[in-house]
């Protein structure tokens, strides 16, 4: 059986598995955001950055190879993760007290887990277009972290191919596949996997208002 070393633990892996997959199978946690089992990983958030034989790599895309020495929980990598989370917070508008997703948000949870207390950088306060055109679903683009999970879920699970990513650099943004560019002109439904899969409060179901009391939410 081929094995890799994850923070010193010798872990077996099957051919074709990524470092993330073999860590999950061994119940070793590697913080992650854009990775979700069942979806093709692409390594955009970089939160799962680990050090493999001295080089930084995203665990979700890196194939496991025999004899690899993988570092996860080191001071250097904690600093990298903390910086990445702060970057995700400053480039968007993440006002948790005013966000319906608060308490069930994977970005927020990841930041709690890493002990993020401050932004460190200066917030950018972007002004991206909100899309409230659809009766049941809304998009708040200022909260999008470009994980592309909705893109993949809508295309591969829902079979609707409603979302895409456009723009470049800091102007990267979520777009909708309709002539008007509006959600109202798509066949999205509040039950779509693409809606549910959003890790943050960028795609929300309308008509709900902080239904679950604080203390009872997913990550409280």
């Amino acid at each position: 059986m081929k094995t890799v070393s994850l923070d010193g633990a010798v872990v077996p892996f099957a051919e074709g598995q990524t470092v993330m997959e073999c860590a999950l199978a061994a119940n070793i946690s590697i913080p992650h955001l854009c990775f979700l089992p069942g979806f093709l990983p692409h390594g955009s958030c970089r939160l799962c950055t680990v050090k493999i034989d001295g080089r930084l790599a995203s665990a979700c895309t890196q194939p496991a190879m025999a004899g690899q020495h993988v570092e996860i929980d080191t001071e250097e990598l904690r600093q990298v993760r903390l910086s990445l989370l702060r970057m995700l917070f400053v480039e968007g508008n993440h006002y948790c007290p005013a966000c319906e997703k608060s308490g069930s948000c994977r970005l927020q949870k990841a930041a709690y887990d890493e002990g993020m207390l401050d932004l460190h950088y200066r917030p950018w306060y972007p002004k991206r277009k909100m899309d409230a055109s659809h009766p049941d679903v809304l998009i708040d683009r200022d909260r999008c972290i470009f994980c592309e999970l909705c893109v993949k879920a809508s295309r591969d699970v829902d079979g609707k191919n409603i979302f895409g990513i456009s723009g470049r650099g800091i102007d990267t943004h979520l777009v909708v596949n309709s002539k008007s560019g509006l959600l109202a002109d798509t066949d999205i439904s509040a039950q779509d996997r693409a809606v549910e899969v959003c890790p943050v409060g960028a795609i929300l179901v309308k008509g709900r208002g902080f239904e679950i009391p604080i203390g009872k939410r997913l990550y409280d």
Partner: peptide
């Protein structure tokens, strides 16, 4: 770099912006 970053990954998308600022 801030202008040419493709915007795909967090450190480059945001980091080049912070550097430029």
């Amino acid at each position: 770099f801030a202008h040419e970053s493709c915007g795909f990954c967090t450190p480059c998308r945001v980091g080049t912006g912070i550097l430029a600022q």
